[in-house]
Simulated assay, not measured.
Amino acid sequence: MKPIVSAMQAWSCFVISCFAIIILGTLGLLFKAEHPELVGGEEDPKNGPQVAATIFIAVMIYIGFLIFCGIQGLLHMRESRRGSISL
């Protein structure tokens, strides 16, 4: 199986996805718990659990990116070990 994206793009996407999962997961948990700093103001969302559900959907998408880009990075590592000639 050949990689679809370059090694740099694969590993960059992997790292960005890791950070996005951590940050969005934390925000989702705070919205789910209806933390007053996030849902306490006049212009803030009133339904914290619904916002949290939307954020968790984004986390699932980033988990998909993480898996895809991780596999792409591993394919690049496997290809470089075989001694293939790169132009």
Rank of each mutant, 00 (worst) to 15 (best):
E79D: 13
Q72T: 09
Q9S: 02
G40D: 04
M1F: 13
Q72R: 04
I22C: 13
E37A: 13
E34W: 02
E34I: 00
A10H: 04
A10P: 05
E37S: 10
V39N: 10
F14P: 00
G73L: 00
D44P: 07
S6G: 15
L66T: 07
L38Y: 03
E34D: 04
P36D: 12
A10L: 00
N47Q: 09
C69I: 00
I23G: 05
A52R: 00
F19P: 04
V15A: 02
L38K: 04
F65V: 12
G73N: 01
S17G: 08
I23W: 12
A7I: 06
L27P: 08
A58L: 10
I71T: 03
A7F: 03
E43K: 15
F68E: 01
I16P: 04
F31E: 04
I71S: 04
E42C: 08
P49I: 04
L87E: 14
I67L: 01
Q72H: 10
L87N: 12
G83N: 06
A53E: 11
A58S: 07
L75M: 15
M8C: 07
G83C: 06
S12E: 13
T54E: 13
N47T: 12
P49M: 01
A33P: 06
S17E: 11
V51F: 09
Q50L: 15
W11S: 11
L38P: 04
F56W: 03
E42L: 15
D44G: 01
K46S: 11
H35Y: 15
K32N: 08
S6H: 11
P36I: 09
L38A: 02
Q72D: 05
I23N: 12
G41W: 03
G28Y: 03
Q50P: 03
E37L: 15
I23S: 09
F68G: 01
G25D: 07
S12R: 15
G83W: 13
F56P: 02
L75Q: 14
E34Q: 03
L66C: 10
Q72C: 02
M1C: 06
M77A: 14
G25V: 12
F19Y: 06
V15Q: 03
K46P: 04
F14V: 01
Y62R: 02
V59R: 13
A58C: 11
G25E: 09
A20D: 10
E43D: 12
I21N: 09
I57V: 09
S80T: 10
G41A: 05
N47A: 08
K32H: 06
I21G: 05
F56E: 00
C13P: 00
I4R: 05
S86E: 08
L87A: 12
I16M: 13
E37W: 13
F68L: 05
E34L: 05
M60H: 10
G83P: 12
V59C: 14
R82K: 15
C18H: 07
T26N: 14
E37Q: 14
V15P: 02
M60W: 14
G25C: 07
F19L: 15
G73R: 10
F68S: 00
L74F: 08
E37T: 14
I16D: 01
G41H: 00
A20Y: 09
G64F: 04
